[in-house]
Write a protein that binds this DNA or RNA. Structure first.
Lengths: 171, 171, 171, 171
DNA sequence: TTTT
DNA sequence: TTTT
């Protein structure tokens, strides 16, 4: 139906390096494995307990896929915004299986890096923050500005990024 | 890890009536099946297309479970806020399977009814709005007010609700 | 700084019809006045109380501005996603004043109509749902589809909308 | 009206140390000044530009106020979830003025610390992560656990926190 | 006033 | 498999 919203917001850490596949068109599709966890004190035992949840994130958004591919690695902390999608597949025995993923579709979703130490080579020397952000949209659409618009198209991590990216991705 | 966020926001319609189980303690646990969908025009064919996503929602939050049980039915439109959880189970062949659900834990999550016509008998006569909302927390904690607090505990659908609920649930 | 998020999510009703200004370029900028409210029972007095909050929403996103202009009116219920922005202005005495608004920037933000009865003439005959949604992005960017993308660009309210809009806006 | 949602999500940095007032009851109310910003490349000039937005956050949630008071300081990066509230006040000339704030009401809202270096004395020696999180609710309500509940009450930053807090606040 |  |  229309009139619906399907949104997932995660802040967590990558359990492993991003994995990149490529479409026939050459566009990257990046898979992330992200952990979120909660800890609490068990009142009965007085012990501290923890529950970790693992999320499969799939990035079709081309700009965000490139950011993920280049600046994220195992351990990176990120803010992710995508949508829930469950897809059906067949296991080796031909049985139907379902997998639910957090998907950042083309031109949609958000990815913001919340640390810098994991931000890849260019940022390795950063003293601390150095994070980098970009929120959806299409790089090429932006850049014009007027007082009425009162806003930038995307966030930036400074001038430390390679130029080829700098042209394609608006940060 | 701490420093993490795991949040799902859905606005969609129930595909069937809520299903209620009860814990040994007597507390209700309500399962919802919620559809969200997107429609778009295919540029190539010019045809309108639609994709519907189905979500399994599990409500452990006692107050919200009671609201769901009593006021939601097939077709109801709701705003839901919960967290992603994947649980492992075994199918009849003993194989490990995984199911991902949107969970509203005890004292957590949000549920707001966005229509009234589907809101069940008590609301059937509503002219239009008449929806009903409640956001997390514990009923018994609220009710005191002071200028400094500047806020109510929860939203309401009017005075049409049964009194036993009215005492337990802050709406 | 990068690594930041500024997001507002509202579900509420329009307190008056949308107001449209036009940029020199002819693009519409739409202002909405949206009410959200919470009701609760005061434990001390036993009385039901309510607090309504009014929000100023400014839509620079061209597609969403057009949707708002054409399909929203006083009383409409909407889901809105934008960002907080505070702007300085001078009152008639030359004093600095500040106003905080929820802004949907160009190519950003989301707007989903959650009722149909308020959705204007075309939807008046709808049996019930019939709402209409569109989420950010740029219409012209969408329309190609491939199995890998697995998603539509935007939501729709059916085939009842005027064709000129139908070409510009992806619903 | 009911059926409404009023939610703000911020990830940003504190521009100054938290400021604490106390209610007559002794409960702390903490004010934060949080910056979010976006940077983008101006297509016309080729220059990098930035826009910073400042947010006033007011924490009435007692547990979160204590966390903020003790572990946040100027420069800390946080995830905040609250609601928009505009309050009227009178300036020194008796004129009506309005201020819009992001408010975490009693038993509501979320606060998650996204860095540790700013986490205060106990965390000062932390090598890196060490963040700390807690999401709404009432400490005293949690701690019981059962398989059906499948969730913890709150997140934790380890065993480094003073015990008096450890009893009151579930982390 | 933060952060990069 | 992350993080603390």
């Amino acid at each position: 139906m229309s009139g619906s919203v399907n949104k997932v917001i995660l802040v967590g850490n990558l359990g492993r390096d991003p994995e990149t596949r490529r479409l026939n068109s050459g566009e990257p599709v990046v898979n992330l494995r992200i952990a979120t966890s909660e800890t609490w004190r068990d009142k009965a035992s007085g012990e501290r307990r923890e529950r970790t949840e693992w999320h499969n994130v799939v990035i079709f958004n081309e700009n965000l896929a490139r950011v993920a591919e280049q600046y994220l690695k195992k351990g990176s902390k990120v803010y992710i915004e995508g949508q829930l999608q469950t897809r059906k597949w067949q296991d080796k025995d031909g049985q139907e299986r379902y997998t639910t993923e957090v998907v950042l579709q083309r031109f949609r979703g958000e990815l913001t890096i919340l640390d810098s130490r994991n931000g890849g080579g260019d940022l390795a020397g950063e003293e601390e923050g150095g994070s980098l952000g970009y929120s959806g949209g299409r790089g090429g659409d932006f850049g014009r500005s007027s007082p009425m618009e009162r806003r930038p198209a995307a966030a930036s991590g400074g001038s430390k990024f390679p130029n080829d990216l700098d042209d394609d991705i608006p940060f």
